[in-house]
């Protein structure tokens, strides 16, 4: 990806988001399910229902509704949640940091695990330990994150109750934070006790999210490392008296990193998608958990806002991956 291509991609972001908006908006209104039906008290009259419907603009045609919603979105107003009766943007902004922090911690765990496994596997190439590594990667690739969430919840929350299994932080801890980035803020303020409490809550969901992603990173990186080690420049390094670990780290790894990031980086979006179920399982107060409630309540404005938020995150991540790859590969950087 050269710089010109990245600019092209930037230009394509607004139409992409508009497309996502149209699809979500129309789909929500075609499939059965009615937000008003979810909120009316039993015994409400037909007139009451019609009044509520009109209040939320649901009595108008879909194109009319869309134009009105889209106009507001362009000015930064995502409407009000029907079920929570609050501004959608405020709701999302309050919860988004929790999800971002969880995804970041999960990604860091996945990278550390993936690197360690890939380097171990490639170091023992052609020996029995390599088979064990490959087999292990295969198993971990086959088990999805929500299953890990349940396994971890049962193992370390119920059978051996080591770690908290619900929420973002203990309710008795007075956080009184200025932002909703609890982890970053407590790190910056040096509140190690709070950092510990936050991480202990985050650990199980983060590991659940990290394991399949770690296996993916390990598989991609190990294949790239093996391929790069067979190249002439790596072989010749041996004839120059360099030891194998040094060659793997200094000659092979920088080359293997590029395809791994290019292919694996975009898969962070899978991890982000995984937050929906995993946050639910651990009652973690992020936007994934919120999305499930929004869907159950047919909360159209909130669902639309959340889907757009996820779309923005996905696009930003893909772009970030391209930028990183361009920075790492001199052939692209100067091309």
């Amino acid at each position: 990806m050269r710089w010109g291509e990245i600019i092209k991609r930037l230009v394509l972001i607004p139409p992409t988001l508009a497309g996502v908006g149209v699809i979500v908006f129309v789909l929500l209104r075609i499939v059965p399910g009615d937000p008003i039906a979810m909120m009316i008290p039993p015994g409400a009259s037909a007139a009451d229902i019609d009044r509520l419907r009109a209040l939320y603009g649901l009595d108008r045609s879909i194109p009319e509704q869309f134009v009105s919603w889209f106009g507001h979105v362009l000015s930064g107003d995502f409407g009000r949640s029907i079920s929570l009766r609050q501004s959608v943007s405020e709701l999302i902004l309050a919860r988004l940091p929790a999800t971002l922090e969880l995804a970041l911690v999960a990604t860091l765990i996945a990278i550390a695990l993936g690197l360690a496994v890939a380097l171990t596997g490639v170091y023992f190439r052609g020996r029995r330990l390599e088979w064990a590594v490959d087999g292990g990667i295969g198993v971990f690739l086959a088990i999805p994150d929500f299953l890990w969430a349940l396994i971890l919840l049962l193992s370390f929350g119920v059978l051996i109750p080591l770690l908290p299994t619900s929420g973002r932080i203990d309710p008795q801890i007075d956080v009184s934070f200025r932002t909703n980035f609890y982890l970053f803020e407590s790190l910056l303020r040096g509140r190690i006790d709070v950092v510990g409490a936050l991480l202990s809550h985050m650990l199980l969901p983060a590991i659940a999210l990290a394991l399949p992603f770690a296996a993916l990173i390990a598989r991609l990186l190990k294949a790239s490392l093996s391929e790069a080690e067979d190249q002439d420049y790596a072989q010749i390094a041996r004839a120059r008296g360099f030891a194998r670990p040094a060659i793997l780290l200094r000659e092979v790894f920088p080359n293997a990193l590029i395809p791994t990031i290019a292919l694996g980086g975009v898969q962070i979006t899978l991890l982000l998608g995984g937050t929906v179920l995993v946050e639910r399982i651990f009652s973690y107060e992020g936007i994934g958990n919120m999305a499930i409630d929004a869907v159950i309540n047919r909360d159209f404005p909130l669902i639309q806002g959340l889907i757009l938020t996820f779309a923005v995150l996905f696009i930003a991540l893909n772009l970030a991956v391209d930028v990183v790859v361009t920075l790492l590969d001199p052939r692209l950087r100067h091309g």
Partner: peptide, 14 residues
Amino acid sequence: ALIPQDPMTSLNPV
């Protein structure tokens, strides 16, 4: 020391 055969593949590209 070695002078390798193929100069195109014998230097580390990055």
